[in-house]
Structures are given as structure tokens and as C-alpha cells.
């Protein structure tokens, strides 16, 4: 009886190690499977002569006319309804009590109505938003098929003939820049007017801005307008804590802007 019991204990102990080993092996297996090439969607070209696009927006110059939003919709055939935007303009109003009100009626295209009486306004300003063309973009990281990618010049683009419309990238973008096109069923977003850049033209939104608040350029060229803008001003990006490598630099961005 004693020997049989011992044998059974040995068997069950062996089983236990087998199972623990299986589970431990499974965990190691899982961790190895996890993508190690996680963050960098595309390596910034080492050759500094190659273009590396960035964008600059000067909040102090923005008058909230939304010409940029209007022009973008016309240039890129964005659906006219107020639910789909490649770029838009927000108005922030901070009252004397510290309340923060943000509005963006039809992305700014319909103009702004200020409901807070002027005496009660502590601070108010406009913030244009668009795709940040992040260097370490979370949107390209999560695309399951490779339809969202980063071009070699640092632009986050979408291959609409290959996109399956899963919407994972829409969820992953921290800035709300992407949307599912209602007619095409695939993802659409700002391309920095790649089709215009290739023809030697400026992006539509940059061109129509009446005050020159928007600019873009080559971050590798230290003499470009954009590089000088970043150098001469205190420029920050949105949500820096997420480490997206955003290349849209704002001047005079207030902390309330998310």
C-alpha cells in the first residue's frame, strides 16, 4: 500500500511539474511572440539630405477662419457632413472660474458663437488640429495588414486599395485624426497633400491660411522655415507623454489643449 501511494505521489508531482512547465513555456512563448519591433514605424533616414517632413502651427497667429478645414475638404474630396474631417479648428474658452469650454462647430467651418460673456472670459484662443504624422505612430503600428504605413519622408499614409476597414488605427490614434470613409468603407486621413507635394505644390491647408499660421517643411534642413520656427519659439507637441514622436509643433500651446 505504501509503495503504491508513493508511486502515485511521484506521478502527481511529475504531472505538476509537467503542467507548470507547460504554462511557463506558454508564457515564454507568448512573450517571444510579442512584437519586438514595436515602436518605430519607419526609421528616420540617417542620410540628412533625405527629407523628413514636419509641421508647425503658430497659435498666436490663428484667427479661427477655418479656411484650412474648408480647403482640405474641397481638395481631398472629404465628405461634406460634419462627421468626417482630415483637419479642423477648435476654440478654447477658459472662464474666470476655471471652466474649460471647447467648441468646433462643423470643424470650425460654420463659424464660432461665443456663449460666455466677455467679462467672464479669462483666456480664449483657437487651435487647429490635423494629423501629426508621428515618427513612432501608434496608428501604423496596429494596422494588421500593412495598409497604414509611414513613407520614407515621414508621412503617415493609408493604402486605400489594401485597407480592410477594421478601424484599429482609428482607435489607436490619440489625436482623433482618422475616420472611416462612409462611401469607401476604408480609413481616410490627412496625407499632408502628398499628391501636391509630389507636384511641387504646398498642402492646400498651408496655402490658404491667411495669416501664415500653418507651415510645413523638412526637419533635416536646419535653415528651413519650419526648423527656424521651432528654434525661435517654445514649441511643444500634443500628448508628449504618449511618446508618439508627433511632428506637429505648436507655438504657444496652452496646457488645456489635449
Amino acid at each position: 500500500m505504501g509503495i503504491k501511494k508513493e508511486k502515485k505521489e511521484n506521478v502527481s508531482r511529475r504531472d505538476f511539474f509537467l503542467k507548470s512547465g507547460a504554462i511557463a513555456g506558454g508564457v515564454v512563448f507568448v512573450s517571444l511572440l510579442d512584437p519586438l519591433k514595436a515602436v518605430f514605424a519607419v526609421k528616420e533616414p540617417k542620410d540628412k539630405r533625405k527629407k523628413w517632413y514636419g509641421i508647425g502651427i503658430d497659435i498666436e497667429k490663428c484667427i479661427g477662419c477655418a479656411s484650412c478645414a474648408r480647403a482640405c475638404k474641397k481638395e481631398n474630396d472629404v465628405p461634406k457632413e460634419p462627421f468626417f474631417f482630415r483637419n479642423w479648428v477648435e476654440q478654447y474658452t477658459i472662464t474666470n472660474e476655471g471652466d474649460i469650454k471647447v467648441i468646433s462647430p462643423n470643424g470650425g467651418i460654420d463659424g464660432y458663437k461665443q456663449t460666455v460673456p466677455e467679462a467672464n472670459i479669462y483666456k480664449t484662443f483657437f487651435v487647429p488640429k490635423m494629423c501629426n504624422h508621428c515618427a513612432k505612430s501608434p496608428c501604423t503600428q496596429v494596422c494588421p495588414v500593412g495598409a497604414s504605413f509611414e513613407s520614407e519622408e515621414g508621412l503617415a499614409l493609408v493604402d486605400q486599395s489594401y485597407c480592410i476597414g477594421c478601424g484599429y488605427c482609428v482607435q489607436a490614434c490619440p489625436y482623433g485624426c482618422r475616420y472611416i470613409h462612409p462611401d469607401k468603407g476604408v480609413v481616410d486621413k490627412c496625407t499632408l497633400c502628398y499628391h501636391r507635394l509630389k507636384k511641387g505644390l504646398d498642402p492646400a491647408c498651408m496655402m490658404v491660411c491667411p495669416t501664415g499660421a500653418r507651415m510645413y517643411g523638412d526637419l533635416h534642413d536646419k535653415d528651413s522655415k519650419l526648423s527656424k520656427f521651432i528654434k525661435d519659439n517654445n514649441c511643444v507637441v500634443l500628448k508628449p507623454q504618449l511618446n508618439t514622436g508627433a511632428k506637429l509643433y505648436y507655438n504657444a500651446l496652452s496646457q488645456e489643449v489635449h
Binding site: 512584437p35 514595436a38 496596429v142 494588421p144 495588414v145 500593412g146 485597407c163 480592410i164 477594421c166 476604408v186
Partner: peptide, 23 residues
């Protein structure tokens, strides 16, 4: 749920390995 369900096979043909959905 996909916007283009007929293209679902692309996840198995060219899976983007940094995407949890592809894996």
C-alpha cells in the same frame, strides 16, 4: 464588421507583425 470584408484574407497573407490583430 470590416469595412471591406472581402479583403479579410490579407491579414493572413501579409500580416503586419507589430499588430496584435494580425498575430
Amino acid at each position: 464588421h470590416l469595412g471591406k470584408p472581402e479583403r479579410f484574407y490579407e491579414m493572413l497573407i501579409t500580416p503586419h507583425l507589430t499588430s496584435a490583430m494580425a498575430i
